[in-house]
Simulated scan of single mutants.
Amino acid sequence: MSNGSTYPPHRRLRGLLLAVVTAVVVAGLGGWLVWRTSGGDGGPPHGAGPPAASRSPGRGAGDASGPGGTDRGPDGKDSPGKGAPHGSLKGKVIVLDPGHNPHNVDHGREIARQVDIGNAHKECDTTGTSTDDGYAEASFSLDVAHRVRTLLQQEGAKVVFTQDDDRRYGPCVDERAAVGNKAHADAAVSLHADGSARGNRGFHVILPARVTAGPAHNAAIVAPSRRLGERLAGRFLAVTGSAPSNYIGHGTGLDVRSDLGGLNLSTVPKVFIECGNMRDPKDAAELTDAHWRQKAARGITEGITDFLTH
Score class of each variant (00 low, 15 high):
residue 283 D to T: 02
residue 8 P to E: 14
residue 154 Q to E: 11
residue 182 K to D: 15
residue 51 P to G: 00
residue 15 G to H: 02
residue 254 L to A: 05
residue 193 A to Y: 09
residue 151 L to P: 01
residue 71 D to A: 09
residue 284 A to G: 05
residue 175 E to C: 07
residue 145 A to M: 11
residue 77 K to P: 00
residue 39 G to L: 07
residue 299 G to K: 01
residue 130 S to H: 14
residue 181 N to K: 06
residue 35 W to Q: 12
residue 194 D to Q: 08
residue 77 K to E: 01
residue 135 Y to K: 02
residue 88 S to R: 11
residue 185 A to S: 14
residue 193 A to W: 07
residue 194 D to V: 02
residue 205 V to A: 06
residue 222 V to N: 13
residue 288 T to N: 05
residue 79 S to W: 08
residue 200 N to T: 07
residue 196 S to D: 13
residue 213 A to W: 00
residue 256 V to C: 02
residue 187 A to V: 06
residue 104 N to Q: 11
residue 291 H to R: 14
residue 113 R to H: 10
residue 38 S to N: 12
residue 305 T to Q: 09
residue 86 H to C: 01
residue 256 V to T: 14
residue 193 A to Q: 13
residue 122 K to W: 00
residue 80 P to K: 07
residue 41 D to W: 07
residue 31 G to M: 06
residue 26 V to F: 14
residue 45 P to Y: 03
residue 107 H to P: 14
residue 292 W to T: 02
residue 161 F to N: 07
residue 184 H to D: 09
residue 293 R to P: 00
residue 274 E to M: 12
residue 119 N to L: 08
residue 173 V to S: 02
residue 293 R to L: 00
residue 26 V to N: 04
residue 284 A to I: 04
residue 187 A to D: 05
residue 49 G to E: 13
residue 166 D to A: 03
residue 166 D to T: 08
residue 310 H to I: 03
residue 217 H to R: 13
residue 20 V to P: 09
residue 243 A to G: 06
residue 279 R to Y: 08
residue 106 D to K: 09
residue 224 P to E: 10
residue 261 G to C: 05
residue 194 D to R: 04
residue 234 G to L: 00
residue 59 R to G: 04
residue 8 P to W: 01
residue 121 H to Q: 13
